[in-house]
Design a binder for these strands. Structure first.
Lengths: 191, 191
DNA sequence: GTCTATAGACTGATAGAC
DNA sequence: GTCTATCAGTCTATAGAC
Protein backbone atom coordinates (compact mmCIF):
# COMPACT_ATOMS: atom_id res chain seq x y z
CA UNK A 1 0.00 0.00 0.00
CA UNK A 2 0.85 3.61 -0.65
CA UNK A 3 2.77 5.15 2.28
CA UNK A 4 0.60 8.24 2.29
CA UNK A 5 -2.53 6.12 2.60
CA UNK A 6 -0.97 4.00 5.33
CA UNK A 7 -0.17 7.18 7.25
CA UNK A 8 -3.70 8.49 6.84
CA UNK A 9 -5.14 5.17 7.98
CA UNK A 10 -2.95 5.04 11.05
CA UNK A 11 -3.58 8.69 11.90
CA UNK A 12 -7.33 8.30 11.51
CA UNK A 13 -7.42 5.32 13.82
CA UNK A 14 -5.35 7.17 16.42
CA UNK A 15 -7.35 10.39 16.15
CA UNK A 16 -10.64 8.59 16.52
CA UNK A 17 -9.43 6.53 19.44
CA UNK A 18 -7.40 9.01 21.44
CA UNK A 19 -7.81 12.43 19.81
CA UNK A 20 -5.79 14.34 17.21
CA UNK A 21 -3.43 15.89 19.75
CA UNK A 22 -2.93 12.65 21.62
CA UNK A 23 -0.87 10.90 18.96
CA UNK A 24 2.53 11.96 17.66
CA UNK A 25 4.59 11.45 14.55
CA UNK A 26 6.58 8.99 16.64
CA UNK A 27 3.45 6.87 17.17
CA UNK A 28 2.65 7.02 13.48
CA UNK A 29 6.21 6.08 12.51
CA UNK A 30 6.14 3.04 14.81
CA UNK A 31 2.77 1.96 13.46
CA UNK A 32 3.57 2.36 9.77
CA UNK A 33 7.17 1.19 9.96
CA UNK A 34 9.14 4.19 8.78
CA UNK A 35 11.10 6.86 10.66
CA UNK A 36 9.28 9.89 11.92
CA UNK A 37 11.27 12.36 9.83
CA UNK A 38 9.99 10.60 6.72
CA UNK A 39 6.43 11.50 7.60
CA UNK A 40 7.25 15.16 7.02
CA UNK A 41 7.87 14.35 3.37
CA UNK A 42 4.19 13.43 3.00
CA UNK A 43 2.77 15.87 5.54
CA UNK A 44 5.23 18.72 6.25
CA UNK A 45 3.15 20.05 9.15
CA UNK A 46 0.78 18.17 11.38
CA UNK A 47 -1.87 20.62 10.18
CA UNK A 48 -1.39 19.15 6.69
CA UNK A 49 -2.12 15.73 8.13
CA UNK A 50 -5.30 17.01 9.78
CA UNK A 51 -6.39 18.51 6.50
CA UNK A 52 -5.71 15.29 4.61
CA UNK A 53 -7.69 13.39 7.21
CA UNK A 54 -10.82 15.53 7.08
CA UNK A 55 -10.64 15.89 3.32
CA UNK A 56 -10.63 12.14 2.78
CA UNK A 57 -13.30 11.67 5.43
CA UNK A 58 -15.66 14.25 3.95
CA UNK A 59 -15.35 12.64 0.52
CA UNK A 60 -15.99 9.18 1.93
CA UNK A 61 -19.10 10.20 3.90
CA UNK A 62 -20.45 12.22 1.00
CA UNK A 63 -20.24 9.06 -1.09
CA UNK A 64 -21.97 7.05 1.64
CA UNK A 65 -24.85 9.52 1.74
CA UNK A 66 -25.25 9.23 -2.03
CA UNK A 67 -25.26 5.46 -1.60
CA UNK A 68 -28.00 5.73 1.03
CA UNK A 69 -30.04 7.94 -1.28
CA UNK A 70 -29.71 5.34 -4.01
CA UNK A 71 -30.51 2.31 -1.86
CA UNK A 72 -33.37 3.68 0.20
CA UNK A 73 -36.53 5.26 -1.11
CA UNK A 74 -38.31 6.30 2.07
CA UNK A 75 -37.14 8.88 4.60
CA UNK A 76 -37.36 6.28 7.35
CA UNK A 77 -35.10 3.95 5.41
CA UNK A 78 -32.53 6.69 4.92
CA UNK A 79 -32.57 7.70 8.57
CA UNK A 80 -32.17 4.10 9.63
CA UNK A 81 -29.13 3.78 7.39
CA UNK A 82 -27.78 7.06 8.76
CA UNK A 83 -28.04 5.74 12.33
CA UNK A 84 -26.36 2.51 11.27
CA UNK A 85 -23.49 4.53 9.81
CA UNK A 86 -22.74 6.18 13.16
CA UNK A 87 -23.26 2.99 15.06
CA UNK A 88 -20.82 1.23 12.75
CA UNK A 89 -18.21 3.97 13.21
CA UNK A 90 -18.17 3.26 16.95
CA UNK A 91 -16.49 -0.11 16.29
CA UNK A 92 -16.63 -1.91 19.64
CA UNK A 93 -17.05 1.32 21.57
CA UNK A 94 -13.45 2.34 21.03
CA UNK A 95 -13.69 4.91 18.25
CA UNK A 96 -15.62 8.08 17.57
CA UNK A 97 -16.37 9.23 14.06
CA UNK A 98 -13.66 11.60 12.86
CA UNK A 99 -16.03 14.55 12.92
CA UNK A 100 -16.77 14.16 16.65
CA UNK A 101 -13.14 13.40 17.42
CA UNK A 102 -11.89 16.57 15.73
CA UNK A 103 -14.72 18.72 17.09
CA UNK A 104 -13.84 17.67 20.62
CA UNK A 105 -10.32 19.02 20.37
CA UNK A 106 -10.96 21.82 17.92
CA UNK A 107 -8.85 24.37 19.76
CA UNK A 108 -5.60 23.15 18.27
CA UNK A 109 -6.82 22.91 14.69
CA UNK A 110 -5.76 25.26 11.91
CA UNK A 111 -8.32 27.57 10.24
CA UNK A 112 -8.51 25.58 6.98
CA UNK A 113 -9.26 22.41 8.93
CA UNK A 114 -11.90 24.17 11.02
CA UNK A 115 -13.46 25.42 7.84
CA UNK A 116 -13.62 21.94 6.32
CA UNK A 117 -15.03 20.60 9.57
CA UNK A 118 -17.76 23.25 9.65
CA UNK A 119 -18.57 22.59 6.02
CA UNK A 120 -18.83 18.87 6.64
CA UNK A 121 -21.16 19.50 9.52
CA UNK A 122 -23.38 21.79 7.49
CA UNK A 123 -23.55 19.21 4.70
CA UNK A 124 -24.69 16.56 7.16
CA UNK A 125 -27.32 18.86 8.65
CA UNK A 126 -28.56 19.91 5.21
CA UNK A 127 -28.86 16.31 4.05
CA UNK A 128 -30.80 15.37 7.18
CA UNK A 129 -33.07 18.38 6.84
CA UNK A 130 -33.86 17.32 3.30
CA UNK A 131 -34.66 13.80 4.46
CA UNK A 132 -36.96 15.10 7.20
CA UNK A 133 -38.68 17.34 4.69
CA UNK A 134 -39.26 14.33 2.46
CA UNK A 135 -40.65 12.49 5.47
CA UNK A 136 -43.51 14.98 5.56
CA UNK A 137 -44.58 13.70 2.17
CA UNK A 138 -44.04 9.97 2.48
CA UNK A 139 -45.20 9.85 6.13
CA UNK A 140 -42.61 7.22 6.98
CA UNK A 141 -41.58 9.01 10.20
CA UNK A 142 -44.02 9.68 13.02
CA UNK A 143 -44.23 12.70 15.33
CA UNK A 144 -42.51 15.12 12.97
CA UNK A 145 -41.69 18.67 14.00
CA UNK A 146 -39.70 21.34 12.11
CA UNK A 147 -37.25 19.62 9.69
CA UNK A 148 -34.33 21.85 10.63
CA UNK A 149 -34.87 21.22 14.34
CA UNK A 150 -35.18 17.51 13.67
CA UNK A 151 -31.96 17.50 11.68
CA UNK A 152 -30.00 19.35 14.37
CA UNK A 153 -31.48 17.11 17.05
CA UNK A 154 -30.58 13.89 15.28
CA UNK A 155 -27.04 15.05 14.57
CA UNK A 156 -26.58 16.04 18.22
CA UNK A 157 -28.10 12.76 19.33
CA UNK A 158 -25.79 10.50 17.32
CA UNK A 159 -22.70 12.53 18.22
CA UNK A 160 -23.60 12.53 21.91
CA UNK A 161 -24.48 8.86 21.80
CA UNK A 162 -21.05 8.07 20.38
CA UNK A 163 -19.43 10.09 23.13
CA UNK A 164 -21.25 8.43 26.02
CA UNK A 165 -20.95 4.96 24.48
CA UNK A 166 -17.19 5.30 24.12
CA UNK A 167 -16.85 6.82 27.59
CA UNK A 168 -18.53 3.77 29.07
CA UNK A 169 -16.88 1.44 26.53
CA UNK A 170 -20.36 0.06 25.96
CA UNK A 171 -21.83 0.06 22.45
CA UNK A 172 -25.27 -0.83 23.74
CA UNK A 173 -25.51 2.66 25.24
CA UNK A 174 -25.59 3.96 21.67
CA UNK A 175 -28.44 1.59 20.92
CA UNK A 176 -30.44 2.61 23.99
CA UNK A 177 -29.86 6.31 23.31
CA UNK A 178 -31.19 5.91 19.77
CA UNK A 179 -33.93 3.38 20.55
CA UNK A 180 -36.76 5.88 20.98
CA UNK A 181 -35.67 7.57 17.78
CA UNK A 182 -35.72 4.31 15.83
CA UNK A 183 -39.27 3.51 16.94
CA UNK A 184 -40.39 6.65 15.13
CA UNK A 185 -39.34 5.12 11.82
CA UNK A 186 -41.94 3.09 9.94
CA UNK A 187 -41.10 -0.54 10.84
CA UNK A 188 -41.10 -1.87 7.28
CA UNK A 189 -38.40 0.59 6.31
CA UNK A 190 -35.83 -0.14 9.01
CA UNK A 191 -33.20 -1.33 6.56
CA UNK B 1 -9.69 33.68 47.67
CA UNK B 2 -8.11 30.40 48.58
CA UNK B 3 -5.26 29.49 46.16
CA UNK B 4 -6.52 25.95 45.79
CA UNK B 5 -9.94 27.22 44.76
CA UNK B 6 -8.43 29.75 42.36
CA UNK B 7 -6.45 26.93 40.75
CA UNK B 8 -9.54 24.74 40.43
CA UNK B 9 -11.50 27.62 38.91
CA UNK B 10 -8.81 28.38 36.37
CA UNK B 11 -8.30 24.72 35.53
CA UNK B 12 -12.02 24.13 35.11
CA UNK B 13 -12.36 27.05 32.74
CA UNK B 14 -9.39 25.86 30.69
CA UNK B 15 -10.50 22.23 30.63
CA UNK B 16 -13.99 23.13 29.51
CA UNK B 17 -12.75 25.51 26.84
CA UNK B 18 -9.78 23.67 25.41
CA UNK B 19 -9.65 20.22 27.03
CA UNK B 20 -7.80 18.82 30.03
CA UNK B 21 -4.64 18.00 28.10
CA UNK B 22 -4.59 21.31 26.29
CA UNK B 23 -3.65 23.47 29.27
CA UNK B 24 -0.44 23.26 31.28
CA UNK B 25 0.71 24.18 34.76
CA UNK B 26 2.40 27.14 33.08
CA UNK B 27 -0.98 28.41 31.83
CA UNK B 28 -2.49 27.95 35.26
CA UNK B 29 0.40 29.76 36.94
CA UNK B 30 0.07 32.73 34.58
CA UNK B 31 -3.67 32.88 35.15
CA UNK B 32 -3.61 32.59 38.93
CA UNK B 33 -0.48 34.64 39.48
CA UNK B 34 1.89 32.20 41.13
CA UNK B 35 4.82 30.19 39.81
CA UNK B 36 4.14 26.83 38.29
CA UNK B 37 6.22 24.90 40.83
CA UNK B 38 3.88 26.19 43.55
CA UNK B 39 0.94 24.43 41.95
CA UNK B 40 2.54 21.11 42.79
CA UNK B 41 2.14 21.92 46.47
CA UNK B 42 -1.67 21.88 46.01
CA UNK B 43 -1.83 19.22 43.29
CA UNK B 44 1.37 17.12 43.21
CA UNK B 45 0.36 15.38 39.98
CA UNK B 46 -1.89 16.65 37.25
CA UNK B 47 -4.01 13.57 37.93
CA UNK B 48 -4.68 15.03 41.39
CA UNK B 49 -5.93 18.19 39.73
CA UNK B 50 -8.25 16.19 37.48
CA UNK B 51 -9.60 14.38 40.49
CA UNK B 52 -10.19 17.61 42.39
CA UNK B 53 -11.99 19.01 39.38
CA UNK B 54 -14.42 16.14 38.89
CA UNK B 55 -14.97 15.73 42.63
CA UNK B 56 -16.04 19.34 43.05
CA UNK B 57 -18.10 19.20 39.87
CA UNK B 58 -19.98 16.05 40.88
CA UNK B 59 -20.84 17.58 44.24
CA UNK B 60 -22.03 20.80 42.62
CA UNK B 61 -24.28 19.08 40.09
CA UNK B 62 -25.65 16.70 42.67
CA UNK B 63 -26.71 19.75 44.67
CA UNK B 64 -28.28 21.31 41.60
CA UNK B 65 -30.33 18.19 40.95
CA UNK B 66 -31.60 18.26 44.53
CA UNK B 67 -32.51 21.90 44.01
CA UNK B 68 -34.44 21.02 40.85
CA UNK B 69 -36.29 18.29 42.73
CA UNK B 70 -37.24 20.81 45.40
CA UNK B 71 -38.31 23.59 43.06
CA UNK B 72 -40.21 21.59 40.45
CA UNK B 73 -43.06 19.21 41.11
CA UNK B 74 -43.77 17.86 37.64
CA UNK B 75 -41.49 15.72 35.51
CA UNK B 76 -41.77 18.26 32.69
CA UNK B 77 -40.64 21.05 35.01
CA UNK B 78 -37.62 19.03 36.12
CA UNK B 79 -36.62 18.14 32.57
CA UNK B 80 -36.94 21.77 31.51
CA UNK B 81 -34.63 22.79 34.35
CA UNK B 82 -32.22 20.01 33.38
CA UNK B 83 -32.05 21.31 29.82
CA UNK B 84 -31.50 24.85 31.12
CA UNK B 85 -28.60 23.59 33.21
CA UNK B 86 -26.76 22.27 30.16
CA UNK B 87 -27.64 25.29 28.08
CA UNK B 88 -26.30 27.55 30.82
CA UNK B 89 -23.03 25.58 31.01
CA UNK B 90 -22.37 26.40 27.35
CA UNK B 91 -21.79 30.04 28.24
CA UNK B 92 -21.68 31.83 24.88
CA UNK B 93 -20.83 28.67 23.02
CA UNK B 94 -17.28 28.58 24.34
CA UNK B 95 -17.44 25.96 27.08
CA UNK B 96 -18.58 22.38 27.41
CA UNK B 97 -19.76 21.00 30.72
CA UNK B 98 -16.85 19.36 32.52
CA UNK B 99 -18.33 15.92 32.05
CA UNK B 100 -18.33 16.21 28.25
CA UNK B 101 -14.92 17.88 28.24
CA UNK B 102 -13.31 15.09 30.25
CA UNK B 103 -15.14 12.34 28.38
CA UNK B 104 -13.83 13.66 25.09
CA UNK B 105 -10.20 13.22 26.14
CA UNK B 106 -10.62 10.28 28.45
CA UNK B 107 -7.59 8.41 27.18
CA UNK B 108 -5.15 10.37 29.29
CA UNK B 109 -7.14 10.21 32.54
CA UNK B 110 -6.12 8.13 35.55
CA UNK B 111 -8.31 5.21 36.70
CA UNK B 112 -9.69 7.01 39.78
CA UNK B 113 -10.79 9.94 37.62
CA UNK B 114 -12.39 7.61 35.06
CA UNK B 115 -14.22 5.93 37.89
CA UNK B 116 -15.59 9.21 39.23
CA UNK B 117 -16.57 10.22 35.72
CA UNK B 118 -18.44 6.97 35.13
CA UNK B 119 -20.16 7.30 38.49
CA UNK B 120 -21.23 10.84 37.71
CA UNK B 121 -22.65 9.71 34.41
CA UNK B 122 -24.58 6.87 36.00
CA UNK B 123 -26.00 9.24 38.61
CA UNK B 124 -27.23 11.58 35.89
CA UNK B 125 -28.80 8.72 33.94
CA UNK B 126 -30.42 7.30 37.07
CA UNK B 127 -31.90 10.65 38.02
CA UNK B 128 -33.28 11.16 34.52
CA UNK B 129 -34.72 7.65 34.45
CA UNK B 130 -36.51 8.37 37.71
CA UNK B 131 -37.91 11.61 36.30
CA UNK B 132 -39.15 9.84 33.16
CA UNK B 133 -40.73 7.16 35.32
CA UNK B 134 -42.54 9.86 37.28
CA UNK B 135 -43.66 11.36 33.96
CA UNK B 136 -45.72 8.22 33.35
CA UNK B 137 -47.78 9.09 36.41
CA UNK B 138 -48.15 12.84 36.10
CA UNK B 139 -48.51 12.75 32.30
CA UNK B 140 -46.55 16.00 31.93
CA UNK B 141 -44.43 14.62 29.07
CA UNK B 142 -45.94 13.41 25.82
CA UNK B 143 -44.87 10.52 23.61
CA UNK B 144 -43.14 8.54 26.36
CA UNK B 145 -41.24 5.36 25.62
CA UNK B 146 -39.09 3.24 27.95
CA UNK B 147 -37.74 5.47 30.79
CA UNK B 148 -34.20 4.09 30.58
CA UNK B 149 -34.07 4.66 26.83
CA UNK B 150 -35.48 8.16 27.29
CA UNK B 151 -32.87 8.92 29.93
CA UNK B 152 -29.96 7.72 27.79
CA UNK B 153 -31.35 9.58 24.79
CA UNK B 154 -31.71 12.88 26.62
CA UNK B 155 -28.23 12.64 28.10
CA UNK B 156 -26.76 11.91 24.68
CA UNK B 157 -28.79 14.72 23.16
CA UNK B 158 -27.62 17.45 25.54
CA UNK B 159 -24.01 16.30 25.40
CA UNK B 160 -24.04 16.16 21.62
CA UNK B 161 -25.85 19.48 21.42
CA UNK B 162 -23.12 21.08 23.52
CA UNK B 163 -20.47 19.63 21.24
CA UNK B 164 -22.00 20.85 18.00
CA UNK B 165 -22.94 24.24 19.45
CA UNK B 166 -19.38 24.88 20.61
CA UNK B 167 -17.93 23.58 17.34
CA UNK B 168 -19.98 26.15 15.45
CA UNK B 169 -19.56 28.75 18.20
CA UNK B 170 -23.32 29.18 17.98
CA UNK B 171 -25.45 28.68 21.09
CA UNK B 172 -28.66 28.69 19.09
CA UNK B 173 -27.65 25.31 17.67
CA UNK B 174 -28.18 23.92 21.17
CA UNK B 175 -31.63 25.47 21.22
CA UNK B 176 -32.58 24.06 17.85
CA UNK B 177 -31.23 20.62 18.72
CA UNK B 178 -33.35 20.54 21.88
CA UNK B 179 -36.43 22.32 20.46
CA UNK B 180 -38.36 19.19 19.51
CA UNK B 181 -37.58 17.74 22.90
CA UNK B 182 -38.90 20.82 24.71
CA UNK B 183 -42.22 20.71 22.83
CA UNK B 184 -42.84 17.34 24.44
CA UNK B 185 -42.97 19.00 27.87
CA UNK B 186 -46.35 20.24 29.07
CA UNK B 187 -46.31 23.99 28.28
CA UNK B 188 -47.41 25.20 31.70
CA UNK B 189 -44.45 23.51 33.30
CA UNK B 190 -41.62 24.90 31.23
CA UNK B 191 -39.99 26.67 34.13
C1' DG C 1 11.40 8.78 -0.47
C1' DT C 2 13.67 7.44 3.42
C1' DC C 3 17.31 7.99 6.44
C1' DT C 4 20.44 10.02 10.73
C1' DA C 5 21.01 13.69 13.58
C1' DT C 6 19.62 17.59 15.83
C1' DA C 7 17.38 21.93 16.98
C1' DG C 8 14.18 24.47 19.92
C1' DA C 9 10.31 24.60 22.59
C1' DC C 10 7.42 22.86 25.94
C1' DT C 11 5.76 19.32 29.28
C1' DG C 12 5.05 17.50 34.18
C1' DA C 13 7.71 16.97 38.06
C1' DT C 14 11.53 17.44 41.87
C1' DA C 15 15.08 19.52 45.15
C1' DG C 16 15.92 22.65 48.30
C1' DA C 17 16.16 27.73 49.99
C1' DC C 18 13.25 31.05 52.29
C1' DG D 1 3.17 28.09 50.85
C1' DT D 2 5.80 30.10 47.50
C1' DC D 3 10.03 30.66 45.40
C1' DT D 4 14.40 29.64 41.93
C1' DA D 5 16.60 26.37 39.42
C1' DT D 6 16.77 22.35 37.06
C1' DC D 7 15.74 17.65 35.17
C1' DA D 8 14.46 14.18 31.92
C1' DG D 9 11.20 13.38 28.61
C1' DT D 10 8.31 14.59 24.99
C1' DC D 11 6.81 17.18 20.97
C1' DT D 12 6.93 19.24 15.98
C1' DA D 13 9.97 20.46 12.62
C1' DT D 14 14.43 21.02 9.80
C1' DA D 15 19.09 20.05 7.47
C1' DG D 16 21.39 17.35 4.72
C1' DA D 17 23.33 12.51 3.28
C1' DC D 18 21.97 8.60 0.48
Amino acid sequence: MDTRTALLDSAERAARQRGFDAFSYADLARDVGIRKASIHYHFPLKADLAFGLIERYAARISERRAEIDREHQTAAGKLGAFLALYREALAEGTQLCLCVALSAGRDSLSPPVLEQLAEFHEDSAAWLEQVFTAAREDRSVIGLSDPQDEADALLALVEGAQLVARAAKDVTLFDRATAACRTRLAPTQLN
